[in-house]
Amino acid sequence: MKGFKALFLKETRAYFNTPTAYIIAVVFLFCTGYFSAQPMFVLGQASVSGFLDLVPLLLTFFVPAITMRLFSEEQKAGTIELLQTLPVEDHEIVLSKYAAAVTLLWSLLALTLGFPVALGILGNLDWGATLVGYAGLALAAAMLAAVGLFASAMTRNQVVAFIVGWAGSFALYALGKVDALVPPWLSPFTDFMGLDAHIHGMARGVIDTRDLIYFASFGGVFLFLTLVRLWVSRTD
């Protein structure tokens, strides 16, 4: 546990003591602000549904940008050898990096809470649905972070890690959008695999165990695969 704490603090510092976190925060706030302010002015609605719709797509870019360095950098610099010869378990290594990425992602989402607050002041906002929707986004971000972390563990090249992480995330995002395009017998499958249905469910303010299971199991699978990857690197 001490090992986890030290590794986690180091990863978090690597984000927040360098420009990385701040550049990402500025760009993220700019994108979300621009697109979510539009319905307010154009449609005159006090609703975050447009925002909740948009953020998953943004996350497919931002999450791999955040996670791409986590393992790739260590593999390229050879410092992975320092990490893997410390008296810490491999799962502590994986979880500490994962936790640092999720901390940054949740901080970004927390920063955007300014939009619903502004909407709440200007109009009549359904706070219950908004907060459940935010929880859905937070879970989706954490799930995609596991995908990105796995992509990073697979290569020593950060650009490849980004592209693979993005492709994986985007595939999950896109599966939720192909309902109209696939044969009807396939649509329950794409519906379940895709991000959309799960985020929309929560954006309506409904907490459904199936959504929670979806986020947890996908995230868990990719974290496990990352752990397997580390183990394989010792035997390869």
């Binding site: 001490k2 090992g3 704490k5 030290a6 590794l7 603090l9 180091k10 410390l86 008296p87 810490v88």
Partner: peptide, 8 residues
Amino acid sequence: EWCAAARG
């Protein structure tokens, strides 16, 4: 310091 902390 980090090495020391990571080694517990």
